[in-house]
Design a protein around this nucleic acid. Structure first.
Length: 306
DNA sequence: GGAATAACCTGGATGC
DNA sequence: TGCATCCAGGTTATTC
């Protein structure tokens, strides 16, 4: 499932291929992939064709490619729009050669002409159709810092503006995060999944970070000490960084990088998906409990509820 | 305004 | 073998 590390792996793969590339063609095969786009498929195709991509940026699980203004606009003007992508649960952005097989679940195809790499294809493939692409205007960031990872300008797509920065972002404010936690009386896991508080964390990394920080997922956020909040943030960052090194977490081929390769972090999971197995730290059986229509995995001994 | 829940969606796994 | 049901989960709209 694409969470921050998986999206960052995709961004790192896309950046060299899309930066400086001109969009030569767009084909929408399934309009459900445009649920976040303000117009219809023909609008999407017409507004993209001929535009030049200026890079690849990310905040949390959102990815965007800033677009140079269309021909006819003032030369040298900066990007004011971006192609925004969210992978949802099963979305993939795949770099393919022009004649490559489409495979299954191809929703949108974007043809590129790159000055160095020549003709390329970016395919948006999505089995469960929770992911989407959209063209969105760029708006100034509220704190004046760069929009996100890989973004040079203090701009962010309007539909991403309400998302908090992620903990790997240099502009992430630890003190502000702790202050927000102190005002939240709901379960800490629910807060970790709230992208307006902290972005990039999904069910897998929430369970892993809480296990590493020895915090019970149902502990009220406001009940955490300053020390515990610091420990949790450190573990979120550590888990993200380790997953990045290992190429992300792949389950049943739902996540692959731009070249279609799976990540290896699933082998390093300590709690998520290990219900009924011994805790790697104390050998107590990992518990799996329903959590808001999903599952939480934790060690009842290492992560005691206070 | 904060918190909780339902809905969206597809395909693999499981049970009968 | 075939069918029905369950499960996975990110985001958003709705409800309380």
């Amino acid at each position: 499932m694409p969470e921050l590390p998986e999206v960052e792996v995709v961004r790192l793969g896309l950046a060299p291929a899309v930066t400086g590339a001109t969009i030569s063609g767009v084909e929408v095969f399934d309009t459900r992939a445009l649920t976040r786009h303000g117009g219809d498929a023909s609008d999407f195709e017409a507004r993209l064709r001929g535009r030049r991509m200026l890079g690849a940026a990310r905040r949390g699980k959102f990815l965007w490619m800033p677009l140079a203004p269309p021909a006819g606009h003032a030369a040298g003007a900066g990007a004011d729009e971006a192609l925004v992508a969210h992978l949802g649960m099963s979305g993939q952005l795949l770099l393919r050669a022009p004649g490559a097989d489409d495979g299954r679940h191809l929703r949108v195809r974007v043809g590129l002409e790159h000055p160095e790499h020549g003709e390329l294809r970016v395919d948006f493939v999505d089995q469960r159709t929770f992911g989407s692409l959209a063209i969105d205007e760029l708006v100034p960031t509220s704190d004046g810092a760069a929009g996100g990872y890989g973004a040079a300008a203090p701009l962010v797509p309007s539909q991403v503006a309400h998302i908090s920065r992620d903990p790997l972002d240099e502009a992430f404010d630890d003190a502000a995060f702790a202050a927000r936690l102190a005002r939240k009386h709901t379960a800490i896991k629910r807060v970790l999944l709230d992208q307006t508080v902290l972005s990039g964390v999904g069910n897998i990394y929430a369970d892993e970070a809480l296990w590493a920080a020895r915090i019970h997922p149902e502990t009220a956020a406001s009940a955490l000490s300053t020390r515990a909040v610091g420990r949790l943030l450190a573990q979120v960052r550590a888990v993200f960084e380790k997953a990045l090194v290992e190429g992300g977490t792949s389950f049943d081929a739902q996540y692959v990088n731009v070249n279609g390769e799976a990540g290896y972090f699933a082998h390093s999971l300590n709690a998520y998906g290990r219900g009924g197995e011994p805790c790697p730290r104390c050998t107590t059986v990992i518990t799996r409990v329903p959590f808001g229509g999903r599952s939480s995995h934790f060690c009842p001994r290492c992560q005691r509820k206070k």
